[in-house]
Simulated assay, not measured.
Amino acid sequence: MNEHVSLSPAEWRVMEKLWDGAPQTITQLTAGLEEETGWSKHTVISFLNRMEKKGAVTYRENGRAKEYFPAYVREEATVEEAERFLDRVFSGSLGLMVSSLVEGKHLKEEELRELRDILDRAEGGGGDA
């Protein structure tokens, strides 16, 4: 991922659409986002311009339309965003974050099983998930 590109929640929505299927034109992105957000074409253009300046998206000219692409892969972006969140909210402590979720009873049984599987894999113990 480009060095520490920070995206707003709205920009994450645009990136999700691009990760789900790039390239996309402004018209395609607007159509894909309009129902869930109500954003106009001009709003989408504003986000794309800002994201391009940040290095989050690129485009190529295709006739009269620009086709937009994400500038990095989803996995890189989510790992970096998770690390920034962990640093900002929990002073970098994964244990503190998990503890606060468990103590606040915010984890469902299925999520606890998934967490156990992840920890098993991390320890080299296998696990199915």
Rank of each mutant, 00 (worst) to 15 (best):
M1E: 03
E3P: 11
H4F: 06
V5F: 04
S6T: 11
S6C: 12
P9Y: 10
A10R: 10
E11D: 09
W12H: 05
V14F: 09
E16D: 12
K17D: 01
K17P: 01
L18C: 02
L18T: 00
W19C: 07
W19A: 04
A22Q: 13
P23V: 02
Q24C: 05
Q24F: 01
Q24I: 00
T25Y: 04
I26G: 06
Q28P: 06
L29F: 03
T30Q: 12
A31P: 07
G32L: 03
L33Y: 01
E34V: 05
E34Y: 08
E35S: 09
E36F: 07
T37M: 09
T37V: 02
G38C: 07
W39G: 02
S40A: 12
H42G: 06
T43Q: 15
T43R: 13
I45T: 02
S46C: 07
N49D: 08
R50F: 00
R50S: 06
R50E: 03
M51D: 04
M51R: 00
K54N: 04
G55I: 00
A56D: 01
R60I: 08
R60P: 05
E61V: 09
R64P: 10
K66V: 01
E67M: 11
P70K: 04
A71G: 04
A71I: 01
Y72P: 05
V73C: 14
V73S: 15
E75P: 10
A77Y: 05
T78D: 13
E80A: 08
R84P: 05
D87V: 10
D87R: 15
L94G: 10
L94P: 07
G95L: 10
M97S: 06
G104K: 14
L107V: 01
L107F: 02
L107I: 01
E109G: 05
E109M: 06
E110W: 04
E110S: 08
L112M: 15
L112I: 10
L112R: 13
E114R: 09
L115E: 00
D117S: 12
D120K: 11
D120H: 08
R121K: 14
A122H: 12
E123F: 15
G126Y: 00
D128N: 10
A129T: 06
